[in-house]
Design a protein around this nucleic acid. Sequence first.
DNA 1: CGCTCACTTGACGTTGCTCAAACCGAGTGG
DNA 2: CCACTCGGTTTGAGCAACGTCAAGTGAGCG
Lengths: 250, 250
Amino acid sequence: MLQSANLHYDKQINDAVLLGSEPNSIQELFRKQPVERLVAGQSLFFEGDAAKHLFEVVEGTLRIFKIISDGRRVITGFLHAGDIVGVSLKDRYLYSAEAITNTKVRRFSRKAFDNEVAGSPQLRPEVFARLCDEMAAAQDQMVLLSCKSAEERICTFLLRELLRAASDGEVDFVIELPMTRLDIADYLGLTIETVSRSITKLTSKGVLAPVGRHSLRVVKRSALVQLSGGDDELARDGWKLAGCERRPRH
Amino acid sequence: MLQSANLHYDKQINDAVLLGSEPNSIQELFRKQPVERLVAGQSLFFEGDAAKHLFEVVEGTLRIFKIISDGRRVITGFLHAGDIVGVSLKDRYLYSAEAITNTKVRRFSRKAFDNEVAGSPQLRPEVFARLCDEMAAAQDQMVLLSCKSAEERICTFLLRELLRAASDGEVDFVIELPMTRLDIADYLGLTIETVSRSITKLTSKGVLAPVGRHSLRVVKRSALVQLSGGDDELARDGWKLAGCERRPRH
DNA sequence: CGCTCACTTGACGTTGCTCAAACCGAGTGG
DNA sequence: CCACTCGGTTTGAGCAACGTCAAGTGAGCG
């Protein structure tokens, strides 16, 4: 698998040794690797394949997903510039990865990576931190999927994207959504129709405003927070919640 | 928090140094620690508390969960004898932990643990492996919550428990379920009523048989597999699934 | 211009949630 | 030994959110 038809990947990439300079961040490790290009829709690797490489996303967006036996697809995450994919892997990929947009990645041999990390007390905490973040994100997603309504899911998703955009320096309240509605639906455990309807409803409420085909403007951020059933990943601090009476689900 | 009212925990536990013998498994690390007892319902730690300790479950069952702002509870996992809780943590607990049954645990200081691991090339792969397993489990749970019907969730859950029991040496097809229906419901993203109805339906189909109050006998394991929407954690090998046409959700 | 593909909108059906009542085993006290 | 209570659980009836099916819209592109 992974025929890498039009991948710029021929050279001695796997054996990068990085003599001399001890890298003290994961990013640095990848910096010397050549950039490979993926066109929109192209696969990077498949669930079940031997996990020989890690990847750093340089530019663009990927989806990672599982296909279950009856053909249903579950998207477990989206990857953006700066993300590393494959840290939490043993010998096989747990999921498939595909480019949503045209994407640039850097590749690093898993074995070399493990060696680098094993030999560097600098790197280990960073790897560990990334694993923890990944775990925290997975738990947030479980919360979302466990007990949030369609609208709450959409709002949570949009807030995450907004937060990410903000941390990337985007100051205006415009969210880029390179993925299709089907991607969003498969990520949030909904259908395209429900996703579409929820977004329509939010725009008609004046919370969102459409900006071109693949972007949304957040008009009322506070309303979005309100409607997201706010628990996680915004206020990872204020642990107040005294009364624990259960509320109806929806 | 964590007043440890009736915890047998007074001595110099945190500073266990383990002179001389380099431990080469995590279990061994905990072996020297005193056993603490929790009565059913007792809390071990709370979401948001400073994560000062890791715990090994020696005996009994714990639930780990989050409470979201409106009081809804999401159980993200159950812990059984042999499990370690807290490996995937940074400075704060991401979830609360409570004993379901009377439970025995061993405690280990996070700082000491990190030191041990940092200094031992033996231990690191094991820690890493546990993290990966945790991650894989989280992904399986996301798949379950994303797109499985109530019955599929129940069947998947029961199969997991069966598998666990089997790996613990239990040969007969009896599953112990120390947790309440509410626990199961909050774990599977359902209500108690739906859990109850699903189990009733499965017993009336002859797939299950009730054994006492808190146990179930699996009469037709194959049917259970069939009905689980089988994708994950049974056959982590057979990656065939050619056709990818989507099937209706339920 | 006319295709396709992503998306939107509408009508309808079903799953699973809500509310409510009955059930049952385990304690507890008379 | 029985009555009583009290959780946890089961069962039933009704309903609403969301999925399904189907038709319509609009943008991109050869």
